[in-house]
């Protein structure tokens, strides 16, 4: 421990250990992931997963990044046996590496001051997002989310109302003759939030097993053979 070069070599070796384990090895395992096909559920067809984000949604992810939404919101659902994420209806299955394949940057977040958003697009609509951004307490009493009014503009109403003008209760309504409309940033952010849905069943996270039943499957083909499900139980 008294020689500078030896100290350097030792440090380099420990660093290399950590780097190999946590940077290189995950890269070797996951770096080659490509889009895949979802597991077929029921009559549905297999789909390519994940689909590329539409352009506006990608612009919205930039708004999400710029305002550091990940300071309060995570975007990952833990498995059924870890925490209550799935019971809270934050997702139908755990999040997987495939879900983030096309996202840049990947903002998984580290703290939940607000709910998880991995599947936010499954449980809301554009108008709900606008209202939440304009004044979160209109939707959720007692929320500590700050309002993002700088993403909205107050306009004088022209010949027609804007199609996406906010419908607000009386105490929040703009003065008569004016309306509150989302800026392009808010529109992009809403498009991004609506694009958040991790609902393709994949090989690692198959759909939950169907309830056991003796009923003949509805899509049974007309045949003389005894359907498998209708066979008397062996035991």
């Amino acid at each position: 421990m008294n020689s500078g070069p030896l100290l350097f070599l030792g440090l380099f070796a420990t660093m290399a250990c950590s780097w190999t384990g946590f940077v290189l090895a995950p890269q070797l395992q996951l770096g080659g992931l490509t889009q895949t096909n979802t597991v077929v559920v029921g009559d549905a067809l297999s789909q390519t997963y994940p689909l590329a984000q539409p352009g506006e949604a990608h612009a919205g992810s930039e708004v999400y990044r710029a305002n550091a939404c990940a300071a309060c919101h995570t975007e990952m659902v833990r498995p059924l046996d870890l925490g209550s994420d799935i019971q809270r209806n934050w997702g139908v299955r755990r999040s997987l590496a495939e879900d983030y394949l096309l996202a840049i940057p990947v903002m998984l977040g580290s703290q939940r001051i607000g709910p998880d958003l991995a599947n936010f697009g499954r449980r809301t609509d554009t108008n709900g997002i606008y209202l939440r951004l304009y004044d979160p307490r209109l939707i959720t009493q007692g929320s500590v989310m700050p309002p993002y009014r700088f993403l909205f503009e107050t306009h004088k109403i022209g010949f027609f109302h804007s199609t996406d003008a906010l419908v607000l209760p009386d105490q929040d309504a703009p003065p008569p003759g004016f309306e509150i409309v989302p800026t392009p940033q808010a529109r992009a952010l809403a498009a991004y939030l609506l694009s958040l849905r991790q609902d393709g069943y994949l090989f690692e996270a198959p759909p939950p097993p169907l309830p056991r039943t003796n009923a003949v499957p509805t899509n049974a083909v007309a045949t003389n053979a005894v359907p498998a499900a209708a066979k008397p139980a062996a035991k």
């Binding site: 946590f22 940077v23 770096g31 992931l33 996202a103 940057p105």
Partner: peptide, 12 residues
């Protein structure tokens, strides 16, 4: 990095 590898690198 591709997908979730960004998150691992950031955590590391």
């Amino acid at each position: 990095a591709r997908g979730v590898l960004q998150a691992t690198t950031a955590w590391w």
